[in-house]
């Protein structure tokens, strides 16, 4: 399965820079506002079920 050519050019160091230099701080900012993985247990909730995602699949 083909890998992306631009990531091949980045190499290990470039991917590390992307991960620790861009993704990680951006992730911290996102998590300061909300947790995308909804990690906390909530004793006050009767259910963790959520409304279904009704958006259509990509063409």
């Amino acid at each position: 399965m083909p890998r992306s050519r631009w990531t091949e050019r980045l190499g290990g160091l470039g991917l590390a820079a992307l991960y620790f230099g861009v993704l990680t701080p951006f992730g911290w900012c996102v998590r300061a506002v909300r947790d995308p993985l909804r990690r906390s247990w909530d004793a006050d909730r009767a259910s963790y079920l959520e409304a279904p995602d009704r958006s259509r699949a990509a063409p």
Partner: peptide, 20 residues
């Protein structure tokens, strides 16, 4: 995004496949 900075080994292996 939710788990960084943990998970770099997986990112390193998987990101090129996803990007590619």
């Amino acid at each position: 995004l939710a788990t960084a900075p943990h998970g770099f080994p997986v990112f390193r292996r998987a990101f090129p496949q996803w990007a590619g």
